[in-house]
Design a protein around this nucleic acid. Structure first.
Lengths: 177, 177
DNA sequence: TTAACATATATAATATATTACATATATTTC
DNA sequence: GAAATATATGTAATATATTATATATGTTAA
């Protein structure tokens, strides 16, 4: 899986500008695949060079012009070929766990404070996912598999946050809030 | 958080060669911070250049020589400074979720098979973490905070796998195994 | 005894990603 | 009216990471 495939996936739903792509990504796939905007712009450029996407210019008087990107037939082929040939190996970096593994010497007071702050932040993220969830229609897999699977990726995010929050609360109980 | 800090963290427990570092990482911190061996060797080199680690050569007749790396006082300072100045923002890439988000068109049969295979693989990972867990002493935070926090990072891995497995099983039930 | 695998250390080429810089307008807030 | 923020698009410099290549020995299994 790479950013190219992610971008092709978004464009398979309809044409988008780089900016719209970036915003849409942050609001959906973002929590399990993040990309910054320079990355998105450069990847769009290289996808266009390969003929997997093309774009039309929308000239605007006053505001900067827009490049509206669309997926090509070759792009659609590449998308589904890539989706099926994936190793599905996660790439995960969780700095909190690294800090916990190596930072025992920082003392209980340090960890009480840091974990309490982290807990608050994670609760806020959970609420964010929950409000996103309300705006998403929940369907059964036989009616609309695509929508069902998309719903399930958000469900993953909610379940993960719940697990994280419980785990943090357990530790705080043990080291004494 | 960066690989430099992770390596300094390991060396703070005692001297290691690049190879040992790589193996130890895979067997502990690996599931929340992974690095390949070329990355480790080049990072060790740059840490040495900065004076945060040094090394002694162990000349071996027959077998290749070993470079045994140790952390310096400056390295220890850098380690604890870095550990405390972290943003703690996760960097997570989960290809399975991306594939689910974009791959609804691949059909229910495709997803049944893929998710069932993924479930088996994740169960194997859970067993691996569990056997690791048995060899690790569980202490209370007042007696040995360092060991307690290390234990908790493994506990996180186990809890995460359990959540993942339940989530996959739920989906398989819904799309009909 | 030959092949395969594990130990051990690296470099080179390439790919990917981040941070800082750069520009320009519209809208909202003080 | 000025400042801040959002929209919108990009480049440059740098940092980080992966894959392939290279070398050389010890150990284990067919």
């Amino acid at each position: 899986m790479d950013l190219q495939t992610v971008i092709l996936g978004f464009l398979n739903d309809g044409p988008l500008t780089g900016y719209e792509l970036s915003k849409r990504m942050d609001a959906s796939v973002g929590f399990y695949w993040h990309a910054t905007h320079p990355q998105i712009y450069t990847t769009l450029k290289s996808l266009a060079k390969k003929g997997l996407v093309d774009f039309t210019m929308e000239y605007q008087s006053g505001a900067p012009n827009k490049k509206i990107y669309s997926i090509t037939d070759a792009g659609r082929d590449a998308l589904f070929r890539n989706l099926q040939s994936e190793t599905l190996k996660d790439e995960v970096k969780i700095p909190l766990l690294v800090a916990m593994y190596f930072g025992g010497e920082l003392g209980p007071q340090y960890w009480r404070e840091l974990l309490a702050n982290h807990l608050d932040a994670q609760k806020a993220v959970l609420e964010q996912y929950r409000s996103l969830c309300e705006s998403l229609p929940q369907t059964d897999p036989d009616r609309d598999l695509k929508q069902f699977l998309r719903y399930k990726t958000l469900d993953f995010g909610i379940g993960y946050q719940q697990f994280l929050i419980r785990w943090l609360e357990d530790i705080l109980k043990e080291i004494g809030e």
